[in-house]
Design a protein around this nucleic acid. Structure first.
Ligand SMILES: Nc1ncnc2c1ncn2[C@@H]1O[C@H](COP(=O)(O)OP(=O)(O)OP(=O)(O)O)[C@@H](O)[C@H]1O
Length: 667
DNA sequence: CTTCACGCAGTTTTT
DNA sequence: CTGCGTGAAG
C-alpha cells in the first residue's frame, strides 16, 4: 500500500482523480512530476490497476528516465515493470513496429537522421533545376515544420502554409514529394514520420487507434506544454476509448516552439477535454526563496502568460550570484575553482550541474574539469551514433536488416574502400530506378553491370548476406565483432587518420559501440535483436553508460558534475547550479535577437535554468568570447541586467580573481 | 577512383 | 577554428 502522505492536498487530489481528464498547470518545482509518479504508484498499488494499462509519456529521454526512476523507487522494480514509461517517439516506434504494414511500409523500416534527410533533399534539389540556389537546410526545415503540423506532401499546396509567390514554397512542394517517395522506396522513415505516420494510421484506421486506446486505459503526459500538433493528435487517438488523461505542465517552461510545440495545447486543455479537473500548485518545494524570487522576476516580463503564484518555505541568507569573467577559458576556470572548493568542503559532485545555452560552450569546461581531475558527465551533445565510424557500422547493421535502405547502402558501399565509386554507383542507381528494384537487389542481380567491378560488387553483396547469417546465429555483440573483423574496420580506421591519437579515439568509439551492444544483450536477454538495438541507439534511448543493472543506487547520483544544455535540464534539479554564458547573443541567442521578437522563449529558457537550483545559483558571463576564432566583446544578458539593482542577486567581478591562465602568467 | 587542397559557411535548442 | 563540399590533379 502506497501512502499519499508525501503529497499536499492539491497534489493528492490530482493523484486520486484517476478517472476523467485532469490538468495540473503549475510553476517550476511545485511537484508536478512527483504528483504524476505518486499517481502511477497509487493506481498500481492501491487501486490494483494492471500496470500494462498505464502509460506515462514525456518529451525527452532524460525526462522519461527520470520518471521511470522515480516510479521505481516508489513501487519497486517488480511492480513498476509493466508500466509503459516512454517518450512520444519510442511509443510511436512501438506502434509502428506492429502496424506500419497497413501504411505500405515493411516492418523492418530504417529510421533516418538529419544527415540522411539532407542527402535526399540535396538530390531532390539537384533534380529540381532552378536559377536560384536553394538552401537545403531551409527546405528541410520547411518539410519538418509541415510534418509536425500533420500536413502531407499532397496537402501542402492546398493549405494556408503554402505561398505560391514564394519560390521556396514551390521548391519545397517538389522536394517534399520527391523526399517522401524516396523514403518509401528505401523503406525508411524520418524522426518526424514516427509521429506523423502514427497519426495518419490512427486517422485512416480508427479501429487501430481504438485498440491502442483500449490497451492504455490510463494515460499521463508530462511537460505537456511542449507537445506539438502531431503529439496532440496522437493523444486524441489514444483517448478514443476513454478520457482518462492526466497532463502536467507549465506554460512558462515551454521551450520547444522551434519544434512546433504549441502552448495552446495546455492552455486549451479544458476546452479540448470538457469536464477536466484543473489543479493548481503554488508551493515550490525545490528552491530556496532567493532563487525563486529571481526566477519569478525574470519570467514576469513575459507577455501572454498565465500568472502564477509561486513561493517557497525554504529560506536562505545567500543570494544568487552573477559573475563577470574574462573570456570563456576564464569563465570555465572560475566555475571549476568554485567546484573544487565545494569538493574540498566535502561536497558531493552529483549535486552540481553546469548549464548552458548551446553545446558549443562545452569545450573550455571540459578542459578545465579534466585538468582539475573532476569527474563529470555530459548529457546530450555529440552523440555516439553521430561519430562517423559508428555511423558507418550502424549503416552496415541497417543494410543487413533492411536491404532496401539505400542511404545506408551507399554509405558503406565503399567503406572500407572497395573501388566502387560514384561512377559505378550511378550505373546501379539508374538500373535500380528503371527496374524499381532496390539498390542492393540490383547489385545482386546485375553485378555485371559495371565492367571490371563484377568481383567487388559480388564480394559486397555476399558480405552482407554472410553478415545476415551471422547476426541470425550469433549473439549481437559477437556478430558485430565478427563483422568488424571481416571488413577489417580497424585497419581502415588506422589508414584514414595519420594522427595516431585520432585513430585510437575512433577505434574506441567502435569498442564503446560494441560494449553498448553487450550491455543491451545483458539487459534484453538472449532474444536481443539487431533491430531493437539499432532502434535503441537511434532514438538515443540509453545514451549513458550505466544501464538498468545497478539497481540499488538508482536514486543516488554518481559523484560527478553534470553538464548539459538548458533544454535537457528541464524537469531536473540540483543543489548547486552554474548557469554560464548569461550574455546577450548567447542566452537570448543571436538568432532569435535578429529574427523578430521571439525573445519570450529565450526568457523561459533562462527561467528553466534558474529554477533547476535548489540552494545555490551562480550565473556567469564573459567580457569577451572567442567567436569563429575572433575575440568579440560581450554584454550581460538583458534577462538579469535589467534586474541589476534590485538586490535579487550579487554582481561580482571575478576577472582579477582565481588562477591565471598560462598565457597571462607568461605575460 | 582516390586524394588532396581550397574556399566557404556555420554555431541554438531535441527526437 | 572546424568541418564540409567542390573541384582538379594523380
Ligand atoms: N508535497 C511535497 N512534499 C515534499 N516535497 C515535495 C512535494 N512536492 C514536491 N516535492 C519536491 O519538490 C521537488 C520538485 O518536484 P517536481 O520535480 O515534481 O516538480 P515539477 O513541478 O515537476 O518541476 P518542474 O516544473 O521543474 O519539472 C522534488 O524534489 C520533489 O520531491
Amino acid at each position: 500500500m502506497i501512502s499519499l502522505s508525501g503529497l499536499n492536498p492539491q497534489q493528492r487530489q490530482a493523484a486520486e482523480t484517476v478517472e476523467g481528464p485532469v490538468l495540473i498547470l503549475a510553476g517550476a518545482g511545485s511537484g508536478k512530476t512527483r504528483t504524476l509518479t505518486y499517481r502511477i504508484a497509487h493506481m498500481v498499488d492501491n487501486l490494483e490497476i494492471p500496470p500494462s494499462q498505464i502509460l506515462g509519456v514525456s518529451f525527452t529521454n532524460k525526462a522519461a528516465k527520470e520518471m521511470r526512476e522515480r516510479v521505481h523507487s516508489l513501487l519497486g522494480r517488480r511492480k513498476s515493470k509493466g508500466v509503459t514509461l516512454s517518450t512520444f517517439h519510442s511509443l510511436g516506434v512501438k506502434i509502428l513496429k506492429s502496424e506500419i504494414t497497413k501504411l505500405g511500409y515493411h516492418r523492418n523500416f530504417s529510421i533516418y537522421d538529419t544527415t540522411d534527410q539532407m542527402s535526399i533533399v540535396r538530390e531532390a534539389l539537384k533534380l529540381y533545376k532552378a536559377d536560384k540556389n536553394f538552401d537545403r537546410k531551409i527546405v528541410l526545415s520547411k518539410i519538418g515544420y509541415l510534418k509536425n503540423r500533420g500536413i502531407s506532401a499532397e496537402d501542402f499546396a492546398n493549405t494556408r502554409h503554402f505561398n505560391g509567390d514564394d519560390p521556396y514554397d514551390i521548391a519545397t512542394e517538389y522536394v517534399y514529394h520527391f523526399y517522401q517517395d524516396k523514403l518509401r522506396f528505401y523503406n525508411a522513415i524520418d524522426f518526424d514520420d514516427i509521429l506523423f505516420l502514427v497519426v495518419k494510421l490512427f486517422k485512416e484506421f480508427p479501429d487501430v487507434a481504438r485498440t491502442w486506446s483500449e490497451k492504455f486505459q490510463y494515460i499521463m503526459i508530462d511537460e505537456y506544454q511542449d507537445t506539438n500538433t502531431l503529439q496532440f493528435q496522437l493523444t486524441l487517438g489514444l483517448t478514443l476509448a476513454h478520457n482518462n488523461l492526466c497532463v502536467v505542465g507549465d506554460d512558462d517552461q515551454s521551450i520547444y516552439a522551434f519544434r512546433g510545440a504549441d502552448v495552446s495545447n495546455i492552455l486549451g486543455f479544458e476546452k479540448n477535454f470538457p469536464g477536466a479537473k484543473v489543479v493548481k500548485l503554488e508551493e515550490n518545494y525545490r528552491s530556496v526563496m532567493p532563487v525563486l524570487s529571481l526566477a519569478n522576476h525574470v519570467i514576469k516580463e513575459n507577455k501572454n502568460r498565465r500568472e502564477k503564484t509561486l513561493w517557497s518555505k525554504k529560506q536562505s541568507s545567500n543570494l544568487p550570484e552573477l559573475w563577470l569573467t574574462g573570456d570563456t577559458d576564464h569563465e570555465a576556470q572560475a566555475v571549476v575553482e568554485d567546484i573544487l572548493k565545494h569538493q574540498s568542503d566535502g561536497g558531493h559532485l552529483g549535486d552540481i550541474a553546469i548549464l548552458y545555452r548551446s553545446n558549443t560552450q562545452v569545450p573550455p569546461l571540459e578542459d578545465e574539469l579534466r585538468m582539475s581531475q573532476i569527474p563529470y558527465t555530459i548529457v546530450g551533445g555529440q552523440k555516439l551514433y553521430e561519430r562517423k565510424e559508428v555511423k558507418d557500422l550502424l549503416a552496415y547493421l541497417s543494410v543487413i536488416h533492411n536491404p532496401a535502405d539505400q542511404m545506408a547502402t551507399r554509405r558503406i558501399l565503399n567503406v572500407p574502400a572497395r573501388g566502387i565509386g560514384t561512377a559505378t554507383l550511378n550505373k546501379f542507381l539508374e538500373k535500380s530506378q528503371e527496374t524499381k528494384l532496390d539498390l542492393f537487389e540490383t547489385m545482386r542481380q546485375h553485378a555485371n553491370l559495371a565492367s571490371g567491378k563484377f568481383n567487388s560488387i559480388n564480394e559486397f553483396t555476399s558480405l552482407i548476406d554472410w553478415s545476415r547469417t551471422i547476426f541470425a546465429e550469433r549473439p549481437l555483440p559477437e556478430a558485430i565483432g565478427l563483422l568488424v573483423e571481416r571488413i577489417d574496420f580497424f585497419s581502415y580506421i588506422d589508414k584514414s587518420y595519420d594522427n595516431a591519437k585520432q585513430a585510437e579515439r575512433r577505434r574506441n568509439d567502435i569498442m564503446f559501440f560494441i560494449d553498448s551492444a553487450e550491455r543491451f544483450l545483458k539487459y534484453k536477454g538472449p532474444k536481443a535483436s539487431l533491430e531493437d538495438f539499432v532502434e535503441k541507439v537511434l532514438l538515443q534511448d540509453s545514451q549513458d553508460k550505466r544501464d538498468e543493472e545497478d539497481e540499488e543506487d538508482d536514486d543516488v547520483r554518481k559523484n560527478e558534475v553534470t553538464l548539459m544544455t538548458l533544454h535537457s535540464s528541464k524537469g531536473l534539479e540540483f543543489r548547486q547550479v552554474y548557469l554560464i554564458g548569461m550574455e546577450e547573443e548567447t542566452l537570448p541567442h543571436k538568432k532569435t535577437v535578429k529574427e523578430g521578437e521571439d525573445i519570450g522563449e529565450e526568457r523561459r529558457l533562462c527561467y528553466v535554468g534558474i529554477t533547476r537550483a535548489q540552494d545555490k545559483l551562480v550565473m556567469t558571463y564573459c567580457k569577451e568570447r572567442q567567436l569563429f576564432g575572433k575575440k568579440t566583446p560581450r554584454n550581460p544578458s538583458r534577462f538579469v541586467f535589467t534586474l541589476m539593482d534590485k538586490d535579487l542577486f550579487i554582481h561580482k567581478d571575478v576577472t582579477s580573481f582565481g588562477h591565471l591562465s598560462v598565457e597571462e602568467a607568461d605575460a
